[in-house]
Amino acid sequence: MNAGIIGAGKLGSALAIALSKAGFCICGIYSKSEESCQLLCRKLNIDVANNLGTVVRKSDVIFVCLPDNDIENMALRIASHFEPELIRSKVFFHVSGALTTEVLKPLENLGAFTGSFHPIQTFADRENGWEKLYDCFFGFEGCNEAGECAETIVGRLNGRLIFISKEHKPLYHAAACIISNYTVTLFHIMFKMLIRTGMNEDAAVNAFMPLLKNTVDNIEGLGYISALTGPISRGDHKVVEQHLKSLSYEIPEVEDIYRLLGRETVDIALKKGNLNEEDVLRLNGVLGNKG
């Protein structure tokens, strides 16, 4: 299968390398950055021009690995600049987690098979990001023909495909953002709190990183409900009250975040079976009941 890549950023590059190692032929690359295109060519040990026409003409399946705001414009550009016979029956994927195949409608109207092909993974490392695409889950939304193609590709990557309905795509992506992006945000909040205690930056990171890693291990090994520990899990409302008093004085902008997360944590602790009715009432009283 001949594959083309539009967008040679972190994800586009990782995808191209992973596909190449899985036996697919990368026959075309197009990037707004000539440097990024040539860097990817060197990694793939191929010699192709940075040319959109080459991607469209030679590829059976084309991955649009662009920022969300640019995907629809690229679909319109391809639909208006190339003959319909070059588009018909080819598979076009975009890799956005948030957008549906509606942004590829101009290509679908010309007979292309379209789908969204979203790796449920994070790609901060440009050099070794391709490794994360193996044994990975992928969210898919699109037509049956594109789905069959996606299953073939994912199978070669030893991954699994999850089918997402069009109407649930934003909720699916919001979930991904919460667990990935907002974990970074929570680490940032923790960092600010520890710096306020007088801890230096290295200690703040190094001392608490094992706690974060072990929490993730516990979620994976025990399930997220059994992995819960801490004062709310124990029903210790007095400790929670102390936390809130300290936050109110030291970092008041974090207090509402603590209360919101605390109320959700009460629900988890209740499912775990650690709390009785009195514990729940006291904790919710301290945290503020849900409105």
Rank of each mutant, 00 (worst) to 15 (best):
K271G: 02
N69F: 12
T183L: 10
A150E: 02
I178R: 11
F92W: 06
M199P: 03
L104D: 07
K105E: 14
V61P: 00
H94Q: 05
I268W: 13
S180E: 04
D267K: 15
E167N: 13
V239Q: 01
A14D: 04
S33N: 14
A204H: 07
C37R: 09
V184K: 09
E255D: 10
N158W: 05
I87N: 02
D125N: 15
G273Y: 08
L212Q: 06
G12L: 04
S36Q: 12
V216K: 04
T215M: 04
E220Q: 13
C149H: 02
R234I: 14
H243S: 01
V48W: 00
P170I: 05
I153C: 05
D256M: 15
A3C: 15
M74I: 11
G155H: 07
V154D: 01
I26S: 01
A112L: 11
F24E: 03
G142R: 00
P231R: 12
Q38Y: 11
L275P: 01
L222G: 06
D135S: 13
T215P: 00
Q121L: 07
I178Y: 12
C25S: 13
R126I: 09
V239P: 00
A14V: 08
L275K: 05
S165M: 06
P119L: 10
E72H: 14
I87K: 04
E127N: 14
L247I: 15
L86P: 06
T152I: 08
K90V: 09
F191Y: 15
I162A: 09
N109S: 15
C27A: 03
H168I: 07
S80C: 10
A49Y: 06
V103W: 01
